[in-house]
Design a protein around this nucleic acid. Structure first.
Lengths: 167, 167
DNA sequence: GGCAATCCTTACTTTTAAGTCAAGATTGCA
DNA sequence: TGCAATCTTGACTTAAAAGTAAGGATTGCC
């Protein structure tokens, strides 16, 4: 249950764009340098994000990338959805997309759990915008802490508070 | 952000053991057959779970696997932790474990978010036991729905209720 | 028009995760 | 003791994800 490299770097590249002033843009070279990845790799990520309508690209000299809409209107859920291709679809194929068929048809105990987990993560991601990530970050920490606390209500079990939240 | 094949199948194998009556056990062959995977593959998973102290194995004829403690005492978080080797450790190495080093030292914006996400998932997993999964399952659906609802409190945003929860 | 800067796209290589195989070790039973 | 059933372990093969390379297409500028 990890964030893939594609998800992580795609998110990071978008973050660079989110920090630009209106009208500015970045070239592939600049984005790649900022993340310490190859231009080719950054190109692939930006292509995906472009195709999904999250970034706008202009070609030719003076070209580059910018967000397709304001950072306030882009939620992490949008981004992850794009970079995490084969989402849980199909009938009873494995959640990972590796097994096309599995022996558990219908009532394979853990499937509802996996789906619910996915929904929980998705809910969290829907509450965070790119704009929030460009701030001082304490903003996001607060939001995530809220979610954390929210979860613990109504269920009898202690949750350690996130260590990185500055009280 | 997917559940890996190893996590999914490991969990499923444990579920088989959780359904046994006290004193019973299953051989590798039985476990493998139950999941539709090869015996070799099941062997690898059980070995990991054994090493982590979640299952107990006995060798020789009449041997097999059983849970090392009661299903009520095994939380999904325990299981996932074992099957998802390189957890977020180290300094600023990528969350995915692929990049040993990255250019973002110190304040790489998204890291706190990734960690918080991980904690959110972990919190959810800590509230579900293997025992709950062996029940009618509506049990777990309820628990997860609670978490879902809990999250939405205190944050102004609509969350679609999980489709698979039978009202 | 010509050239340079840039994005676009496809095919390829490398690395990692997943899965397999086979030989070894342990136990129970006749 | 010997054999069959079982788990254990390490090396190997295969499949998927990640990353690279290179040529094509578009644009702006002189």
């Amino acid at each position: 249950m990890k964030v893939s490299a594609q998800e992580e770097y795609g998110l990071r590249c978008l973050l660079q764009l989110a920090r630009l002033s209106p009208g500015e843009s970045l070239t592939l070279g600049q984005i790649a340098e900022g993340e310490g990845i190859s231009q080719a790799n950054a190109g692939k990520l930006m292509w995906l994000l472009n195709k999904a309508g999250l970034v706008a690209s202009t070609r030719g000299t003076k070209g580059g990338y910018a967000l397709a809409r304001s950072a306030e209107e882009i939620h992490l859920s949008d981004i992850i959805k794009v970079l995490d291709e084969d989402m849980l679809e199909g009938h009873c194929k494995s959640y990972t997309g590796l097994q096309e068929i599995c022996v558990h048809t219908g009532d394979c105990g853990i499937r509802p759990v996996l789906i619910s987990l996915h929904e929980i993560v998705q809910s969290a991601l829907e509450r965070i915008t790119l704009a929030q990530l460009t701030d001082t970050e304490s903003n996001v920490d607060q939001a995530l802490y809220q979610i954390h606390v929210g979860m613990s209500r109504g269920v009898a079990r202690d949750i350690p508070s996130p260590k990185h939240v500055r009280s």
